Amino acid sequence: MAMTSTYAPQLDRTYMLAQLETLLNMPSPSGYCMDIMKYIEAEAKRLGYSLEYTPKGNGIITISGETTSKVIGLTAHLDTLGAMVRSIKPNGMLRITPIGGYAMHTVEGEYCVIHTRDGRKYEGTVLSTKASVHVFKDAGEWKREEANMEIRIDELVKTKEETEKLGISAGDFVSWEPRTRIFANGLVKSRHLDDKASVAALLGLMEWLKREGKTPAYTLKLIFSTFEEVGHGSAYIPSDITEMIAVDMGAIGDDLTTTEMDVSICAKDSSGPYDYEMTSRLIELAKRESIAYAVDIYPYYGSDASAALRGGSNIRAALIGPGVHASHGMERTHADAVVNTAALLLAYVME
Rank of each mutant, 00 (worst) to 15 (best):
Y7K: 10
L11P: 05
Y15V: 05
A18G: 07
Q19S: 08
L23I: 01
L23V: 04
M26Y: 08
S28Y: 03
G31H: 04
G31L: 06
Y32W: 13
M34A: 11
I40N: 05
A44I: 04
K45S: 14
R46C: 11
L47S: 06
L51H: 11
T54P: 09
K56W: 12
I63R: 01
I63Y: 07
I63S: 03
E66S: 05
D79N: 01
D79P: 00
A83M: 08
S87L: 07
R95F: 08
T97P: 10
M104P: 05
V107D: 10
G109T: 07
I114S: 06
T116I: 05
R120G: 09
K121D: 10
L127Y: 15
L127N: 14
K130C: 05
A131K: 15
A131E: 15
S132T: 14
V135K: 13
D138E: 13
E141M: 10
E141D: 14
W142C: 10
K143Y: 12
E145T: 10
I153W: 08
K158F: 13
E161R: 02
E164Y: 06
K165L: 05
K165E: 13
L166M: 10
G167Q: 09
A170C: 11
F183W: 15
A184H: 13
G186A: 14
K189W: 06
R191H: 00
D194W: 00
A197R: 00
V199D: 02
L205H: 04
L209I: 14
L209Q: 12
K210E: 14
K221G: 03
F224P: 02
F227A: 08
F227M: 09
G231S: 02
S234Q: 01
S234P: 05
Y236F: 05
P238N: 10
S239P: 04
T242K: 15
D248S: 00
M249C: 02
M249T: 02
T258H: 01
M261T: 06
K268D: 03
D269Y: 12
D269M: 10
S271D: 07
S271P: 06
I283E: 11
E284F: 08
L285W: 08
L285K: 14
A286T: 10
K287Q: 15
R288S: 12
A294F: 03
A294G: 12
V295P: 03
Y298D: 00
A305Q: 09
L309K: 15
R310E: 12
S313C: 04
R316S: 15
L319D: 02
I320S: 00
P322Y: 00
G329R: 01
G329I: 01
E331R: 02
T333P: 02
H334V: 01
A335D: 14
A335P: 02
D336S: 13
A337R: 00
N340G: 06
T341H: 06
A342R: 09
L346S: 03
Y348V: 01
